[in-house]
Design a binder for these strands. Structure first.
Length: 887
RNA sequence: GGGCGGUUAAUUCAGUGGUAGAAUGCUUGCUCGACGCGCAAGAAGUCACUGGUUCGAAUCCAGUACCGCCCACCA
């Protein structure tokens, strides 16, 4: 076979190859599934759609690297694979971005009006929305770009519409006045899980309310004094002796002067504060529910933008905190404010913009979720869907079993408009899949659509089937649904994963995916969250630019352990850059030494493999088996770790070094060809094993490693097959024995300050026949592996004078060092070894002299321990003899 | 308040009952026909603590301490 004659640089340069190979793969159409009819043999993943406003961060890099590893691996295994990409319209986030753009020109969305504004957002999306998609390509991800989807696409919007209408008609979507989480900056309601609460230092204010027609006073405690402007009652515990007499009486709201009934309710905790609570039904969920029980008035004191409204009287138009300050002053002046305590409590913040959330009574749309949650819990209990790592199952159950109705309406303009029309004439509510022209009841044309849009996560919940064409019965849907795996972060298990399972079961008619792989969150070297503002963020594209996509990918994959977080640092990336380069150079070596090799011209059956050849085949097949198994278990870190160790520590450090003398000679052509054959086969398999992790460099080398490849790209080459016949324990044991002897000799050389390159005379005394044979057979390699001038080997070799000694079980090694050896140092070296041996011997003795151990431990353990004692005694005696001679 | 996870070498982590491991870092030495992004050798751990089970515990059980996260919140 011809090896393409190519100069390979000593340092791998990813920039020269990555773009071209990506183009090549795209041209060949490898990213697309073979067909969409072979349901049996399919493997599919839908991408967690990044926001159209997003730019690629390290979390995306990790998440998508894992997906690409799975897809590339399965593709090589012969599956009909589809990795479907797309983006999310990201309601609030995108609207915010475009609003900011407008603000630069001093405009607001109101200036444009709804229609023009939405048009503007679409324009923005067309221009920038696929930035992140282009960035994904830089990392080599093999998504089928021809199937790119967007949550606001026409097709996906139809799916959203259908789901809404069906849920509504089944009574699972309803509209209600309720205290919701209101973000005054985004000016929309948000769902409970979109609120992030944080402990904050605050004050607890004690305010006196006078009792009507009495000199008595009832004191309430509050953290949000401004809400008293919306108070409509004071509540006490019915069993509280202090306040029993006031129940049914009237309290006077300070400043405002409103009359408030004093009601009794079990909700009130006698122990907390004063035991009396001001009740603001429009701005506190508990107060709201208490208010319902006692039929209290609900007074909303806030505008949508978080300022006080006309109900706040003279405090109208002030921001909440300004109002609080001024109101407290007034209360103080009027002697109503009697005490201020330090107090820490948790305060809700908007997960999009971090603004403090105000609970606000408003009319919103909700999904009645319990009925949808039940089957979604059951399906996980039945293990039809599995979490990796499995502990996330508990987190899922915990949330699903305590789930609350989902507020899905958002007071935004960018998003799926709620498909509900209100007839202005007969008050009919019209909910249909097609836009109604007239009222379905009275025929009036005077109908108005609900102004709100749906929570972005509503459309994301349909992603696994809406992207495949649902509600149409498409071939894609039939072939690729349910999808095989979902890879995502644990931060969106509730937002997304749980809802996809519920919606998938309800509308997709099946689970949306079988395997949920929860990937860790990436933190910096100190374990801190990465963020642009902190300046500790590692930009994946910068890493790609500096070190290449393969390095980034294999780094991330290796760090993907079963924990919640991984710490990434430049130092770590560099270590994998070095690995990439190691692969490059091992390949460079191999290619150069395979120039005269043609696998078609050799008779494989007639080759006589050496110990090292058999050993590397044995190891290779073990690695094929276990790396495949690790991938099956979604253990990306373990898979990459064993590949790293195999390539570097076994293939490079030992195998290549072992065969060098065979490759460099031309006397024994058959032996040379054997080495070449094993070298070629092993490297070629390594490349295929590494391909899912490091697609670019493996393709580059695979193409250079000219060969009888049956296919034109490593991407579509078969996944290496495990061949058990090559796995041989005895061979591996022998090799380890040999390695240990070599290491022991190198150790002596290093200890005695003999440079590695200096050739030595070597005497080896081996008592055991098998070991003697083993060493004799492989003595050929010692010249290069340890640089020997002469070797004398046998059963009763006399120790030459003035030689350094090494003891290894029943083997003695002597290196004569006339004039070089320092007797004192040699004694010290041997004594140190003797001391250690004696210590180990003591421990072992104790064990085998323990009656309980002998009677209760299994025999193989006892025998092992006895053998160990014998060995240690042997070593000890040899060391002592040598020491005696030195003195 | 409820729940989950963690604590093993300087660092990041493997290790689920039988001699404490890897990678990186560190120390020392090295132009050996792949690679200094390298080679060789080496040092380095009371496996958080206290009990218990066991012939034997990093590993199983109970408790303690510390760290992290999630959920629910009493104004």
């Amino acid at each position: 076979m011809k090896t393409k004659d190519m100069e390979m640089s000593t340092v791998y340069n990813p920039k020269e190859v990555e773009e071209n190979w990506y183009k090549y793969w795209l041209e060949k159409g490898y990213f697309q599934p073979k067909n969409n009819s072979d349901k049996k043999n399919h493997y599919s993943i839908v991408i967690p759609p990044p926001n159209v406003t997003g730019s690629l961060h390290i979390g995306h890099a990790l998440n998508n690297t894992l997906q690409d590893i799975l897809i590339r691996w399965k593709r090589m295994e012969g599956y009909n694979t589809l990795w479907l990409p797309g983006t999310d319209h990201a309601g609030i986030a995108t609207q915010n971005v475009v609003e900011r753009e407008l603000a630069k020109n001093g405009k607001s969305k109101e200036d444009l009006g709804r229609e023009k504004f939405v048009e503007k957002v679409w324009q923005w999306k067309t221009k920038y929305g696929d930035n992140i998609i282009e960035q994904l390509k830089k990392l080599g991800f093999s998504c089928d770009w021809s199937r790119l989807r967007f949550t606001f696409d026409e097709g996906l919007s139809k799916a959203v519409r259908k789901v809404f209408v069906r849920l509504y008609k089944e009574g699972l979507i309803y509209r209600e006045n309720y205290v919701v989480n209101w973000c005054p900056r985004c000016q929309t309601a948000i769902a409970d899980i979109e609120v992030e609460s944080r402990e904050e230092n605050a004050n607890l204010y004690y305010v006196e309310y006078h009792i009507k027609d009495s000199k008595d006073i009832i004191t309430v405690a509050t953290t949000r004094p401004e809400t008293m402007l919306g108070d409509t009652a004071v509540a006490v515990n019915p069993n509280d002796k202090r306040y029993k007499k006031y129940i049914g009486k009237i309290a006077i709201l300070p400043v405002v002067g409103r009359e408030l009934p004093i009601v009794a309710d079990d909700y009130v905790d006698v122990e907390f504060g004063t035991g009396a609570v001001k009740i603001t039904p429009a701005h506190d969920i508990n107060d709201f529910e208490l208010g319902k029980r006692h039929k209290l008035e609900e007074i909303n004191i806030l505008n949508d933008n978080g300022t006080m409204n006309e109900k706040a009287g003279k405090y109208k138009n002030l921001k909440v905190l300004e109002c609080r300050k001024k109101l407290l002053n007034e209360l103080k002046e009027k002697k109503h404010l009697v005490k201020i305590e330090d107090y820490t409590h948790s305060v809700g913040h908007c997960y999009r913009c971090d603004t403090v959330i105000e609970p606000l009574l408003s009319r919103q749309w909700f999904v009645k979720i319990k009925k949808l949650a039940e089957p979604a819990i059951k399906i996980v209990e039945d293990e039809k869907i599995k979490f990796t790592p499995s502990r996330w199952t508990k987190v899922y159950y915990e949330w699903m079993r305590n789930i609350k109705d989902w507020c899905i309406s958002r007071q935004l303009w960018w998003g799926h408009r709620i498909p509900v029309w209100y007839c202005q004439d007969c008050s009919e509510i019209i909910v249909e899949e097609e836009d109604p022209k007239v009222c379905t009841k009275c025929g009036s044309k005077n109908i108005i659509q609900d102004p709100d849009v749906l929570d972005t996560w509503f459309s994301s919940a349909l992603w696994p089937f809406s992207t495949l064409g649902w509600p149409k019965k498409t071939d894609d849907l039939n072939c690729f649904y349910p999808t095989s795996a979902l890879v995502t972060g644990f931060d969106i298990i509730f937002f997304w994963v749980a809802r996809m399972i519920m919606m998938g079961l309800k509308f997709g008619g099946n689970i949306p995916f079988k395997d949920i792989v929860i990937n860790p969150l990436v933190k910096d070297a100190e374990g801190k969250k990465m963020s642009k503002s902190k300046g500790n963020a590692i930009d994946p594209l910068t890493v790609v630019d500096k070190y290449g996509a393969d390095t980034l990918r294999v780094t991330l994959a290796s760090l993907t352990i079963q924990g919640d977080y991984i710490c990434l640092s430049e130092e770590r990336i560099k270590s994998f850059r070095n690995f990439t380069n190691k692969i490059w150079n091992a390949s460079r070596f191999s290619i150069n030494n395979l120039k005269d090799f043609d696998i078609n011209k050799i008779e494989i059956e007639k080759l006589e493999m050496s110990l090292a050849d058999k050993w590397i085949f044995s190891r290779l097949n073990r690695i094929i088996e276990s790396s495949t198994e690790y991938l099956n278990e979604n253990k990306f870190g373990d898979a990459s770790k064993i590949l790293y160790e195999f390539v570097w520590n076994e293939f490079c450090d030992w195998y290549i070094e072992f065969i060098k003398p065979r490759l460099y000679q031309d006397e024994d052509i058959k032996d040379k060809q054997t080495a070449q054959y094993v070298l070629w086969t092993t490297l070629e398999s390594i490349l295929r094993l590494l391909h899912p992790f490091m697609p670019f460099i493996t393709e580059e080398i695979w193409q250079k490693l000219s060969s009888p490849h049956k296919v034109e790209s490593i991407m579509i080459a078969p996944w290496p097959e495990y061949k058990g016949k090559y796995v041989d324990n005895k061979i591996e044991e022998n090799m380890i024995e040999l390695m240990n002897i070599i290491k022991a000799i190198r150790n002596i050389k290093a200890d005695m300050n003999i440079s590695y390159g200096k050739e030595i005379d070597l005497y080896i005394n081996i008592a055991d026949n098998n070991k003697l044979k083993l060493v004799e057979k492989n003595i050929y390699y010692f010249k290069t592996m340890i640089r020997t001038k002469s070797i004398i080997i046998g059963k009763d070799i006399e120790k030459p004078e003035n030689s350094a000694t090494g003891v290894l079980e029943d083997i003695e090694i002597f290196i004569p060092l006339k004039g070089v050896i320092n007797i004192k140092e040699e004694i010290e070296r041997l004594e140190k070894r003797l001391k250690k041996t004696k210590r180990e011997l003591n421990v072992a003795y104790k064990k085998i002299n323990n009656k309980d151990f002998l009677s209760k431990a299994p025999t193989d353990i006892i025998n092992k321990e006895k053998t160990k004692v014998d060995e240690l005694i042997g070593i000890k005696e040899k060391l002592e003899n040598n020491l005696k001679n030195l003195r």
